[in-house]
Computed example of a mutant assay.
Amino acid sequence: MKITRLRALLLTAAFILLLPLIGMIFTSEVDWGLPDFIIMGVLLFGTAFIIDLIFKKVRTTEKRIIYAAVVLGILFLVWAELAVGIIGSPFAGS
């Protein structure tokens, strides 16, 4: 069975999304609700689709790396903002 790039990206996103679920089993410090899983799922799977699109459309390796790094940087900024509110937007819950 050949694993395509998109399938590998989606499996990675699913694995990352499983980490808080497993953490909730072993500790009470991880407290995610259904909305948290939905939002993070949209972020992770959306990022996977965008990175796959970048790799399909962009020809040069340097540009692929730059564009993918920008997308991952945006993902991490949104994630940090939703988690702890580094920018102080209304999305952080403050």
Rank of each mutant, 00 (worst) to 15 (best):
K57T: 07
P35K: 04
D52A: 09
D36V: 05
G73T: 00
V42G: 03
I25N: 01
L18E: 12
A68H: 00
V30C: 07
G46R: 10
D31T: 11
P35D: 13
L72E: 08
G88Y: 15
T4N: 12
L77Q: 06
L21I: 15
V70T: 08
V84N: 06
A8R: 14
I38C: 03
L72S: 08
F26Y: 12
K56T: 04
S94I: 14
I38D: 03
E81A: 10
G88V: 15
T4A: 10
S89Q: 11
I38M: 09
R64A: 02
I65G: 05
I86Y: 02
K2P: 05
D52N: 13
M40E: 11
R7W: 09
G41K: 02
W79D: 05
A14H: 06
W32F: 10
R7D: 10
V78M: 09
L9Y: 15
R64C: 03
L17G: 07
L75M: 11
V42K: 04
V71R: 01
L9V: 00
I51E: 10
T60I: 12
G85R: 02
M40V: 08
A92D: 12
V42W: 04
M40P: 00
D31Y: 11
M24Q: 10
S94A: 11
M40N: 06
I65D: 06
T12A: 11
A92H: 08
A83Q: 12
Y67S: 03
L18Y: 05
R59L: 10
T4P: 05
V58R: 02
V42F: 14
I54Y: 03
T12H: 01
L72M: 13
M1R: 05
V30M: 14
A14R: 01
G46E: 12
V84C: 07
F76W: 11
F45Y: 13
A8E: 11
P20C: 06
L9Q: 07
L11C: 10
M1N: 09
A92K: 05
G23S: 11
E62T: 07
I39K: 07
R5W: 05
F49C: 04
F15Q: 00
L72D: 04
L17S: 06
P35F: 14
R64Y: 01
V71S: 08
D36R: 04
I22A: 08
I54F: 12
L44H: 09
L17N: 08
S89W: 15
P90S: 08
I54N: 04
E81L: 09
Y67V: 05
L19K: 04
L44W: 09
I74N: 01
I16Y: 07
I86F: 08
G73E: 00
A83L: 14
D52L: 02
S28D: 14
L6G: 01
G41H: 01
K57V: 09
R7Q: 13
G85C: 01
K2W: 13
I39H: 01
A13Y: 15
I39P: 00
S28H: 13
L53H: 03
L21S: 06
S89T: 15
